[in-house]
Amino acid sequence: MVADSHAVVSDLLMGGNGQALVAVEGLTKRFPVSKSLFRQASSFIHAVEDVSFSLAPGESLGLVGESGCGKTTVGKLLVKLIEPTSGQISFRFPSPDAGSGEAVDASTIRSADLRAFRRQAQMIFQDPYESMNPRRTIYDTIAEPLAVQGVGHLTDRVDRVTEILTQVGLTPAGSFLFRHPHELSGGQRQRVAIARALVIGPSFVVADEPTSMLDVSSRTGIMTLMQNLAQGLGISYLYITHDLAVARYMCHRIAVMYLGKIVEMAETEELLGNPLHPYTRALLSAVPVPDPTYRRDRPDIRGDLTLPINPPPRCRFYDRCPVATDHCRDNPHPPMEEHGPGHWVACYEA
């Protein structure tokens, strides 16, 4: 299995231009189910299991899956909010004097390096209500990355915050600086969250369902804004969402996750037009795509998503899979295999 994932990664890297901004290999995160100071945990939630992918500069990758499948965990691992149980993440951020720099292994980034890392990798959080300190003003919230990193003097920071507020469409910027988050609408707060992530000029941003808590009318605005900013500033997103339609709009490529595993990954149109994994097909049959030329089968999946606590060593989707065979039951989780150019699927029956 390990050998397989290695092969996949090197292929992915070779398949691209060999200069991935972010490369993830065999990423695994297990949370102990009951942790105590004196007792070793016996069960683990396998939140993320042996996940590999890479992201080219300026590219946006969609991470799609049901609630609880481990999307946020992948995002937090990538910005080093939590450390992986095993696996590797490496970054190749552009160096200050143009051109891409050296590839850096994330596990070696510590203290002083971490500061520099935080200038390059940022995250937009899932919940625009809870991800802002209610006692701090919008200025304080957005200027925080600049302030803790010691970027510029106070007046420089005010100018920078004013500029980014204008860029995210909160104008006149001056009238927002000294508001508190509770005085803003959900859409406005999400714009503030975007401004905070972008104010320090990162090249990689994890966007964790930035539109899921908003009403439909605010969504398109935020999505358009993020698109424009990505193009204008050359940012790569790992765009996390449970909605394939959103991913289609936002991302060049899509990776579909199921219970901690990536089960299928391809260019957006290829994945939507030619889904090979039974889970992707099931997801697609639940999304209304306003394009009559899409042909799709409608496989039904049974049951609900379960918690991946000490999962049995077989295909994670086995219990709900409509096309499962005895082969699937008796073998470990299927490895990722390339079924077309850049189209990777983990399924014995694909």
Binding site: L81, R118, R119, Q126, S131, N133, V148
Partner: peptide, 12 residues
């Protein structure tokens, strides 16, 4: 609270 994580990502 998520804003604590946000502060860490900011570099705090």
């Amino acid at each position: 609270k998520p804003y604590i994580e946000a502060a860490r990502v900011a570099g705090g």
